[in-house]
Design a protein around this nucleic acid. Sequence first.
DNA 1: TGTGATTGTCCGCTATACGGATATAATATC
DNA 2: GATATTATATCCGTATAGCGGACAATCACA
Lengths: 270, 270
Amino acid sequence: MAPRKKSQAGQGSEPAIQLKGVHRALHVLEYIAIHPGRAIDIAEGLGLSWATMHRTLQQLEQGGFLKRDLDTNRYSIGPRMWFIGATYVANHRVLEAAKTYLEEARRLPGVTVQLVERSRYEAVALYSTHSDEEITKATYGYHFPLHVGSKGQVLLAYAEPNFVDSYLSGDLEQLTPYSLTDPKEIRELLAKIRSQGYAVTLADVQLFTGSMAAPVFDRGNKIVACVCFVAKKSAIENPKRREEILETMLKTAQSISIALGWRPGQGKFI
Amino acid sequence: MAPRKKSQAGQGSEPAIQLKGVHRALHVLEYIAIHPGRAIDIAEGLGLSWATMHRTLQQLEQGGFLKRDLDTNRYSIGPRMWFIGATYVANHRVLEAAKTYLEEARRLPGVTVQLVERSRYEAVALYSTHSDEEITKATYGYHFPLHVGSKGQVLLAYAEPNFVDSYLSGDLEQLTPYSLTDPKEIRELLAKIRSQGYAVTLADVQLFTGSMAAPVFDRGNKIVACVCFVAKKSAIENPKRREEILETMLKTAQSISIALGWRPGQGKFI
DNA sequence: TGTGATTGTCCGCTATACGGATATAATATC
DNA sequence: GATATTATATCCGTATAGCGGACAATCACA
């Protein structure tokens, strides 16, 4: 962050990464979180030498941070990571404030109610609840890219401009034929989302569902999460249902923002 | 694990821990998951030199694995750990099989229904759902020791004997005046739990709640999790309610075991 | 503005872990 | 079932990452 006072290499170039081993291990964990699989594929995916990879995996598995299927030799995240990671939501002030409102919104039949946060380049659900039968796999634990789905788009719409730039310049995966992948179109959509204050998408994540989402702000007018309602595609296509869901969703999001100290009215546009 | 073929130090003593840095970092993370706090306290708690600690914390925070309160300098688990850890439950076969049964059990008013797993020395909830108002903070994310609460006790009762020995020889914290802490008493209780097939506890975790739990087995007759119902203390003290809750709880646990390939009858005692 | 408690940084030495090479095991191919 | 191919496991000399003692900068409280 601060410019190096004495630069060995003259040019103030690289921030000189420290604790390489640790970083590698954590990258391996994160990579496996996204792409569980065999040792080789992971080594390849991360461009690591086999020996190094093997050592790392071995140690992480021994510690219970990774789990390994003995038949297929496929690695996935282990229980100890859940143990650690779960404490993040346990002490989460936004989630704490949100819970009662989310539970209230659960009364809506056929809707999954979620509180979603951005973690780097993905939207991750902190909480998920629904009235009757489950209609989607989108409970907590699943994560989605930011350019598809109303949750991702809302989080992106209110993110810092240079983050948006860097995100849109990366690979934009197409999950269904209805997923937007053109950066220009996405930017237009984000502007629209900002101006109307919410996002709605249909079938761009899973073919049979749609969703709508609205931002949650804190007292500093900064986005800290979003509320997302997921329902069957047909429900959202039905104007009456759609109106009903939208209204509850907006009210829920706003209630949470207010509980966090945000006050309506003051500059929605930064 | 395997005896070293060429032992520098002669005696085949230590298993020669590798990747020290990585292990340290993960221990730090785990320690902070349990005791969030200031840098010094963590360094002290883990017996690390200050410089080392500082480096480690700095790197982990920079990566988003730790979060740091700028006012108080207190560290806690960061969002990226949740991102990684959450994928553990997303691909969890037991949870997958259990969900429908857990949701069904939610119909019981005033009861929180959980699926709980053991991770080393703690009971961690994988899933948690409830009918109406929340009566306890025991959603996912919280973790409890094994010698208190019906969930912990069930998990302990069916654990490997030498694990039980090692657990009971450690520090047994007393959460309320009703928490058992005498190893001998606990052992007797565990035997009772094994013979009756479930555990019930009152006010030994939180003063105003009680809970009951039963084991979930897989096809190999091995415990893989437990189902736990938490309710207000008064509900469990009421014989009629208690019977009702117990019955549903046992049915739920058994249904899940069966869905995992377990068959009733065959040797409950190992 | 002083004193102790806490956090931040430097740098030389040493133990650590990297990675090429080689051995074994598992899986595909014919 | 024999051979080719791919995947996993282990060894070991060397370069280098990172440890930790010491010192510097802040903060917290009076």
